[in-house]
């Protein structure tokens, strides 16, 4: 185990780098979706598209929601870089 972690991360033998990554990956993907959707909602919302949802600009609002979730993930990963509980042997 420790041999492998040493080999992979070089400097931090007991750290679980992969766990850190998954939150950044989720935040990154959802955040990118959020940005694209907000831009589409602002600049590309045709009347015909808006009419489908009875006037609700779902690209804009959905995009803002996703951006918020993405920020939450990144903040979480920053505030608690390692989530492995203390009980781990």
């Amino acid at each position: 185990m420790s041999e492998r972690t040493n080999e992979e991360t070089g400097k931090a033998p007991r750290q679980k780098a992969g766990l850190f990554d998954i939150r950044i990956i989720i935040g990154g993907l959802i955040g990118a979706y959020g940005v694209i959707l907000v831009l589409l909602g602002l600049f590309n919302a045709t009347d015909e598209e808006l009419a489908r949802g009875d006037g609700l600009n779902i690209n804009l609002w959905g995009g803002l929601g996703m951006a918020a979730v993405a920020i939450a993930f990144v903040v979480w990963a920053r505030v608690r870089p390692v989530v492995v509980p203390v009980e781990k042997e």
Binding site: L40, G41, N44, A45, E49, G53, I58, N59
Partner: peptide
């Protein structure tokens, strides 16, 4: 098909 605009449709 009926409700989502392009963009959200992709998601």
């Amino acid at each position: 098909r009926d409700l989502l605009p392009n963009g959200m449709l992709g998601v």
